[in-house]
Amino acid sequence: MLGRTANGMFWMFRYLERAENTARMLEAALRMALTRDLMTSEEEWRSVIATAGQKATYEAHNGTYTGIQVWNFILRDKDNPANVREMFKSVRTNARMVRTAISSGVWEAVNENWMRLDKMLSRPVSQSNVGEVVKTIRAAGTQVHGAMESTMLRDEGYHFARAGTFLERGDSTARILDMKYFLLLPSLKYVGTRLDSGQWDQVLRSVAGDRVFSWLNAGRIDARGIVQFLVLDDRFPRSLNFCHSALREQLAALARIHGAEVESNALMREADTHINEVTVDDIFEQGLHEFLSDFTRRNAAIGNAIADDYRFLA
């Protein structure tokens, strides 16, 4: 497979995952903001911008943090080159580039959802339809992934697509979790209060883990249990452990196809060993922020190595 085709498959599904994760984060913020007064609601929207890594760009064009400003900036604002509309446009652009490497079902799911979202995001998103927009973005991700799983040959293209998905998903979960105490919680005096529990619930909703966590823990919400769940529980498909295990499988499959292991396989083994040997006690002793920063650094290094190993720019 040509490097540019591998690059297209990899980034098509990274952008798809990024768009879906952003929609989930917005959905959780919308729910939380409805229960807050004006001041704490603004902090909620501020945390969304910070988690998305768009604080500087947002504040260059906006002086306040209201819901309608934030979700339009995240979803469609031309001043934000990383908005969801542009993300999904990149999904479609990459899909067109690798048209001969994907099934007709995958192409149709991408193209039809792009046309639907492009129309919805061609005008400002109001309070009355933001929920529908977010739901449509999530459904688009589900449809494209479903088409890939049910119609794609398990060849190089499939494995590059899945590698992109799990690399992006792990990064997203780590970044959402990392923002918890630094941005969502106004003060340490709130730790252990209802507000603290509400913030952890928002973290779970942002990664679609609220119901399954509640089921596993009889409705009890606490920091230790959530870190255990989102970092180490290999049953949950958005946990860091699950994402790295799945990424390792995709890279191993690519190594078998190419007949040799490469740098990304070595980095993956090192990262996998690290996360499989760590305990919740180790994470809190090291510091949650420090642990997650190390995870995102390793994740980025693996992504760069994949691009180099398979000559994405060749």
Results as ranks from 00 to 15, higher is better:
V70Q: 05
A252P: 00
R99S: 08
M12F: 05
S197K: 10
I283S: 07
E17F: 06
E43Y: 02
W11E: 07
A307Y: 01
N7S: 10
M87G: 05
T35W: 02
V98P: 01
S197G: 11
E17D: 12
F312K: 05
T22V: 15
A260Y: 03
L75K: 06
R269D: 12
A147T: 03
V84L: 14
A29E: 01
G219Y: 05
T142M: 15
R31I: 15
S90W: 03
I68Q: 14
G3Q: 03
Q199L: 11
L232D: 02
A82S: 15
S90D: 03
M32Y: 03
L267I: 09
Q69D: 11
H61A: 13
E42Q: 15
N241C: 10
M12L: 15
S187L: 09
E149A: 12
L267M: 12
W200A: 07
Y65K: 10
A218N: 12
R138F: 02
E285Q: 14
M12C: 11
L184H: 05
F295N: 07
R238S: 07
L230F: 04
T57K: 10
D272V: 07
I275C: 03
R224D: 10
W200S: 05
V203E: 04
Q286G: 04
G8K: 01
I257V: 12
L153T: 12
F291L: 14
T22K: 06
R31T: 09
R169Y: 01
V134Y: 02
M25R: 01
L216Q: 07
F160R: 12
T273H: 11
T35H: 08
D222H: 08
L292F: 05
S187N: 10
M120N: 00
F242M: 09
R99N: 06
F312Y: 05
F182R: 15
E149H: 13
A218D: 13
L117S: 05
M152T: 09
R123Q: 13
R175V: 04
R24S: 06
T57A: 15
V212Y: 01
T193C: 09
Q54N: 08
Q202M: 15
W11T: 03
L288D: 06
F13K: 06
N276Q: 11
I221C: 06
R92L: 14
A255V: 09
F236N: 00
W215A: 15
G287S: 14
Q202T: 13
M97C: 03
K89G: 04
T136C: 12
I226S: 00
R194Q: 11
A266I: 14
L254I: 12
S172P: 00
P124M: 15
E285Y: 08
G3E: 07
A307H: 00
R18G: 02
R76W: 01
R298F: 00
Y15V: 11
E27P: 00
A314I: 04
G170E: 05
A29S: 07
L247D: 04
T64G: 00
A109F: 05
P186R: 15
G192R: 04
G219I: 09
A33Y: 02
G287T: 13
A246H: 04
F73S: 07
L38R: 13
R154I: 03
V278M: 11
G303P: 02
Q228I: 01
R220M: 09
G287H: 10
M25F: 14
Q250S: 05
H244Y: 10
L195T: 08
D308G: 08
Y190P: 00
V227S: 02
G303E: 03
T273D: 14
N111R: 11
D210S: 13
G225V: 08
S264I: 11
V262Q: 08
S264K: 10
W200G: 01
